[in-house]
Design a protein around this nucleic acid. Structure first.
Lengths: 127, 127
DNA sequence: CACTATACATAGTATCACACAGTATGTTCG
DNA sequence: CGAACATACTGTGTGATACTATGTATAGTG
């Protein structure tokens, strides 16, 4: 079965989003949030994450010690509020660093070749 | 079992790399390359991809019609050379666009909160 | 009360990077 | 020559995880 190109594109874009999700979530949890509000905050900024993705993610990150959570009751229904733990902050800093590094590499990759356009280096047969 | 933080970090970084791999490979295949040389080219630019990842990836991308390949014999052992197909070029352009969009979002996310630091918007109870 | 938005949770599926192992062909050097 | 190493590709198995779909419950609204 030949896959439709728009499916392929969607899948690749999803993969692109995938690696970023954790970083995005952590970055927003510098201020305390509950899951639903976090999801909306991210969506507002252009990053849509499904509920079935976000909630398990938050539990996972908490299990890894990057987040701390507590139930709280205020206006509406009980909500589970999350914040960065100290390790979470450290991880966020580290991840942000990795991201910037990665972004630099990718920028270089997709930028080059427009001009330049050198051919692939042939493995030297007789040095 | 508590996961060691460096494992967690490594895994997250890997996830970060994951989404980028296809884009990186496509970007380099604007010039014809074989698998091994592609791997080296990417490694030189700071993106290390395992063989067990890259080779299947190339076959997959070819299966999706994004790449064209041919065996060729020159100096050394037979090598399978890959290049972008027209659809591959289109996909590369599209993905690069997605990437830039994503990069902008992430940049905004990790940049904000340093200053600013507004508290989480409370869902208005009475709209 | 029915209906919608909010809020969280879980089971099941599919995808995919990587580890690991294997095959085979150069190249180098004692 | 032949042992060791780099090159070049292939294949299997596994673990992690994003998403779909579905379920539960509460709060506000007509």
């Amino acid at each position: 079965m030949a896959e439709r190109p728009e499916d392929v594109g969607a899948k690749l874009e999803q993969e692109l989003r995938r690696g970023v999700i954790v970083l995005a979530a952590l970055s927003q949890l510098r201020t305390q949030q509950y899951g639903y509000s976090l999801r909306q905050a991210l969506a507002e900024r252009g990053l849509v994450i499904e509920e079935g993705t976000l909630y398990p993610l938050l539990r996972r990150l908490e299990g890894q010690g990057l987040l701390a959570s507590e139930w709280r009751i205020e206006d509406g229904p009980p909500r589970r509020y999350y914040t960065l733990s100290p390790q979470g902050e450290a991880m966020l800093a580290s991840l942000a660093q990795s991201w910037r590094n990665m972004a630099g590499i990718v920028e270089g990759l997709i930028g080059e070749g427009k001009a330049g356009d050198e051919q692939p280096k042939k493995r030297k047969a007789t040095p």
